[in-house]
Design a protein around this nucleic acid. Structure first.
Length: 277
DNA sequence: GCTAAATGTTGAT
DNA sequence: TCAACCTTTAGCT
């Protein structure tokens, strides 16, 4: 599930479920065992997301109250779910792990298992600085500066469909938001960055500011306007959520032209050749 | 019940 | 350009 909205949603939820608690940390699978041993018994302080990256912050809790001489130990965990990675919450007592559980966190009232992540590792503050330094603005973070993305796009000869997926240009946008934002802005995905007007960029940026928080709230990407539902009743559970993503060959929801598909940046891109030019 | 593909990134070749 | 990650789901049968 992980485009940026999913990671921000996870960060909020984990902060709420585990924040301030002393955790039991383990790695039933073993691949994170050494690191888990270092974290075990520490206090989970914060969870936050930068683009598709999730950061957990721990400290050893209460050391500062004991006066000088007691060093506060802090640790940072960096998690990237990749395509397969997923968290699962379990009520206590935790069931025996099924499958490959890379990291198991047990708090006061709930446990969380992490499976199949692309990355799960301990970070130094410098590692985190380096990560954040190479990410473009994240529309879900209040401090995001769209100028950084615009400067990268306006002088690039790469396709806008590639640029939107590039985490150095925009952090948190993935294959679904790429296709849908281009559709909603009427921009043909093969156009190079230099051909994108400031107005088009502004439209896509503000659309991301609008759409991604909806993704965070709902837990999935939903970008189809009610008036484009083709009469689907408001109570329908399976209302269409995307205009073009994964709709190759199907009629465009606006003009009925068959949706096209092609691999761009190693991922399947979808667009309407009539609505996007 | 089985197979293929999937919202992503890194590091080796 | 490709393997790794190794779960989940959609779409068949």
């Amino acid at each position: 599930m992980p485009e940026g909205h999913a990671l921000h949603r996870l960060a909020r939820r984990q902060q709420r479920l585990l924040g301030g608690q002393r955790l039991n940390v383990s790695s039933p699978q073993g691949r994170f065992a050494h690191e888990a041993a270092l974290l075990n018994g520490m206090v989970f302080r914060r969870a936050e997301a930068w683009g598709k990256h999730l950061i957990h912050r721990y400290d050893n809790g209460g050391a500062s109250e004991r006066g000088r001489g007691t060093a506060v130990t802090r640790r940072i965990v960096h998690i990237h779910l990749g395509i397969y990675g997923a968290f699962r919450e379990e009520s206590l007592p935790m069931p025996e792990p099924t499958g490959q559980v890379r990291m198991r966190l047990i708090g006061d009232e709930i446990g969380i298992d992490l499976r199949g992540p692309n990355a799960c590792e301990i970070y130094t503050p410098e590692d985190l600085e380096r990560l954040v330094g190479r990410l473009g603005p994240d529309p879900l973070r209040g401090d995001a500066d769209p100028e950084v993305a615009w400067q990268a796009i306006k002088k690039s000869k790469r396709a806008i469909g590639s640029l939107l997926m590039d985490q150095k240009v925009l952090a948190g946008v993935g294959n679904i938001y790429r296709a849908e934002v281009l559709f909603r802005a009427g921009v043909e995905p093969h156009r190079t960055g230099v051909t994108i007007t400031r107005e088009e960029f502004d439209e896509m940026w503000s659309d991301l500011l609008h759409l991604m928080p909806i993704g965070v709230r709902r837990g999935h990407i939903h970008v189809v306007r009610p008036e484009d539902d083709n009469g689907a009743p408001a109570y329908a559970v399976d209302r269409p959520r995307t205009y073009v993503y994964r709709r190759a060959g199907e009629p465009c929801r606006l003009c009925s032209t068959p949706v096209l598909t092609e691999v761009m940046e190693g991922r399947n891109l979808f667009w309407c050749p009539s609505c996007q030019s």
